[in-house]
């Protein structure tokens, strides 16, 4: 089997300051990888380098494209990258409003992604949009309401629907359950787990919540000061952490 994503020596500096440094790993189809680490450790920087939002200073991000096989997304044209981010990639932001169009109806938010990949038939688009709203447990009667009228948890679920409607193969998530209360988080986690399994998605999830990674991620990477200090099977890293920093991280939360 070929990796879906191969990250090789990715580094990003902000002036003299390190964002992330020399990160390498392979992600295989169907795998979910978690990234944890203290605030400022470079998690979002790395995620944005992988998703093509910021250009790394060094390194390769090789994605196994449907049409042409493995391609370095750092060196491909902006247009090709934009196409990938509409079709094969999804990006779930921590704040739903960064990933949604707040002035457009819920149905429109989901339908827009479909139109961006060339769907034209109004009935089909509306049908798929309603279907996805139901899959993320948003009542179909809300299809014409704007996200501004939704709760935080509903907005986050709408963002997920908008992202997954085009059948992406790789989902990037930056703190997808951050800012939501615990019961809403649990519901969202359950939803995400089901979607990952049923659609065979691969995902990379940045979070500070070790309970979230334990439940969602197969593999885990621990970052500190821009570098990966430990990586492995999620339950192994959490239950038998090897690096001093991972041990500190795991022992400073109650029980996960």
């Amino acid at each position: 089997m070929r990796p879906l994503l191969s990250v090789q020596g990715v580094s990003k500096r902000y002036g003299a300051h390190i964002g992330c440094a020399d990160v390498s790993f392979d992600l295989y189809p169907g795998e979910v990888m978690g990234i944890v680490g203290e605030s400022g450790s470079g998690k979002s920087t790395l995620l944005n380098c992988m998703a093509g939002h910021i250009a790394p200073d060094a390194g390769k991000v090789i994605f196994d494209t449907r049409a042409d096989g493995p391609k370095d997304t750092v060196t491909m044209s902006e247009a090709q990258r934009r196409m990938l981010s509409r079709t094969d990639w999804a990006f779930v932001h921590q704040h739903a409003r960064d990933g949604l169009r707040m002035g457009v109806s819920a149905g429109g938010n989901v339908g827009e992604r479909l139109m961006a990949v060339g769907e034209r038939h109004y009935g089909d688009i509306r049908g798929k949009a309603t279907d996805w709203l139901e899959r993320v447990e948003i009542d179909a009667t809300r299809v014409d309401d704007r996200p501004t009228t939704f709760s935080g948890g509903m907005q986050q679920r709408l963002q997920i629907a908008r992202n997954l409607v085009t059948g992406p193969r790789l989902v990037f998530m930056d703190e997808p359950t951050g800012g939501l209360d615990v019961s809403v988080q649990a519901r969202l986690l359950d939803l995400l787990r089901g979607l990952v399994r049923d659609m065979g998605l691969s995902a990379i999830i940045v979070t500070h919540d070790l309970a979230v990674v334990r439940l969602l991620a197969d593999r885990l990477m621990v970052m500190k000061s821009g570098r990966v200090v430990e990586a492995g099977l999620t339950d192994q890293v959490l239950d038998d952490p090897q690096h001093a920093y991972s041990q500190l991280l795991v022992s400073s939360v109650l029980q996960v």
Partner: peptide
């Protein structure tokens, strides 16, 4: 047992 499961290194 956890070592055999790969849960402990």
């Amino acid at each position: 047992m956890r070592m055999i499961y790969g849960n402990y290194l």
